[in-house]
């Protein structure tokens, strides 16, 4: 009895190999799609913004006159927003992570918090905007100020910080903790002096990535009712503000009225992308430079 018909196999082999080669090229082409789009997107935005980004653009206030308009207000608004978001997400995110990794008993409650966090990560950002509108802007009567926006954003990016902080804390080897206990340190002393310093690079990377998400997020702030045209610069966390993504949004939809607004939007996008690129570079440097492998 013949198990393998060599002739049959030989006949089919040709087409199988051709198909194999075709598939390989196809997979490669599909991978190129993402890269090509990225190049086109950058090219498009940069060519649209040429001649529009200069020192005046960065330091002027908003204006309906496209030639005179600048994004000083949006830049300072973004700055103030980060000043609120950074400490709140850091404390809430790292606190939650320490609780889950070091203190919580493995059980239903811990699993519940964990599932809750992964579900929060999947809630559309615009729903967080409605939460902020209902609770902070209207419920607590803050109005569309920096603090209300910052609290909303902090809750939005909280899952990112919690998950990355958890991973960083989990990566700290047990023997470091054991050594600390062996020296007579208490649990909190061990966490404060041994675990957190060892986990800090990972935690910081997560916080920076969360902040870069918050900087680019638009939808929740639109829902909070940030005005389209705002002239005074924010001076504190109880002032009204605008941020770069919102400025891009309003200029993009108004480009139907004034064509130059599209250039202003593109110029703001370039500034925003440069800022994001810098933040991500810092995160990568921290990850590579200070992360210890045990």
């Amino acid at each position: 009895m013949k198990y393998i018909d060599a002739e049959q196999v030989q006949k089919k082999l040709g087409s199988r190999l051709v198909l194999n080669n075709l598939a390989k090229r196809l997979f490669f082409l599909a991978t190129l799609v993402g890269l090509v789009v990225l190049v086109i997107l950058f090219y498009r935005v940069v060519t649209d913004s040429i001649g529009w980004i200069d020192f005046d653009f960065l330091t002027s206030k908003l204006s309906t006159d496209a030639e005179r308009a600048g994004i000083m207000g949006a830049i300072s608004g973004t700055f103030w927003l980060m000043l609120v978001v950074a400490p709140i997400t850091f404390i809430l995110g790292v606190g939650t992570a320490i609780y889950l990794e070091e203190y919580a008993k493995k059980g239903r409650f811990q699993a519940f918090i964990q599932i809750n966090i992964s579900n929060l990560a999947g809630v559309p950002s615009i729903v967080f905007g409605l939460l902020g509108l209902t609770v902070f802007v209207r419920g607590l009567g803050m109005g569309a100020v920096v603090l209300a926006g910052g609290l909303t954003m902090a809750l939005l990016v909280l899952p990112v910080v919690v998950v990355s902080a958890q991973e960083a804390i989990r990566a700290v080897p047990q023997f470091l903790r054991d050594a600390s206990y062996g020296m007579g340190a208490t649990k909190w002393q061990t966490i404060k002096n041994v675990v957190l310093p060892a986990a800090l690079p990972g935690i910081l990377t997560g916080v920076i990535l969360a902040l870069s998400r918050a900087i680019g997020e638009t939808a929740p702030l639109v829902v909070l009712g940030i005005p389209a045209l705002l002239l005074p610069l924010p001076d504190g966390i109880f002032d009204k503000f605008t941020v770069m993504p919102l400025q891009i949004y309003y200029w993009t939809i108004d480009a139907a009225l004034v064509a130059e607004y599209a250039n202003l939007a593109a110029a703001t996008i370039v500034v925003l992308l440069v800022l994001l690129f810098l933040m991500n570079s810092v995160a990568i440097i921290i990850r590579n430079k200070f992360q210890k492998r045990y």
Partner: peptide, 23 residues
């Protein structure tokens, strides 16, 4: 390729919106 995909994932959606409408 992987970092480039990460960049693509990190671009704010408002930028994609601008790209969709104007390009």
């Amino acid at each position: 390729v992987k970092p480039i995909l990460e960049i693509l994932a990190g671009i704010p959606t408002i930028v994609y919106g601008f790209f969709a409408l104007t390009f």
